[in-house]
Computed example of a mutant assay.
Amino acid sequence: MQTLFSTEGMHRENSFKIWRETLSDRSLPIELERLDDVPFQATIETATVGSLDLTRLTQGAVRANTSRDMIQRRGQDGTLIVTFQLAGVLTSLQDDRSSVQRAGDLVVLDHRPGVLTTSAGHQSLYLELPRERLESVLGSARLFTSMTVGADVGALSLARTFFLDLIKIRRQLAPDTAIRMSEIGIDLIVACLAERLAHEAPRPVHGTLVVQRAKAYVEAHLGDPSLDPPQLAVAMGVSLRRLQELFHERGQHISDWIWDRRLAAAANRLSDRGFVHVPIGTLAYGCGFANQAHFSRRFKERHGLAPRAYRQAALLGAP
Rank of each mutant, 00 (worst) to 15 (best):
A141T: 02
V107E: 01
T58F: 07
L316S: 15
L28H: 07
L106E: 01
R196E: 08
S124C: 06
G251F: 03
E45Q: 15
V211S: 05
D36C: 07
R74V: 15
R213W: 07
L227P: 06
R20I: 00
V49K: 03
R160T: 09
V89D: 08
C287E: 10
T145G: 05
Q2V: 09
P175H: 07
V211W: 05
T118V: 02
A174L: 14
K215E: 15
G139M: 04
L23I: 06
L106N: 00
E45D: 13
L80K: 05
S182I: 07
E31H: 12
L270M: 10
D77Y: 11
L158G: 12
V149Q: 02
V218G: 02
N14W: 04
A61W: 04
N65L: 10
E45N: 09
R273V: 12
T161P: 00
L263A: 04
R73C: 01
P204A: 09
L106P: 02
R269V: 04
A191Y: 02
Q41H: 13
Q244H: 13
V205M: 13
L222E: 10
L129V: 15
A47T: 14
R213Q: 12
E219F: 05
R261E: 14
V153T: 15
V210N: 02
V82K: 00
A235S: 13
R142M: 02
T161Y: 03
R302V: 11
L193Q: 07
S24N: 09
M236G: 01
T148N: 14
Q212F: 01
A220R: 15
A47K: 09
A47Y: 03
S296K: 10
I71Y: 00
G88H: 02
Q252H: 08
V108L: 10
G288S: 11
D96E: 14
Q172F: 05
A198N: 11
R131F: 08
S51A: 12
P307Y: 05
I44E: 13
A61Q: 05
P229D: 05
L90R: 12
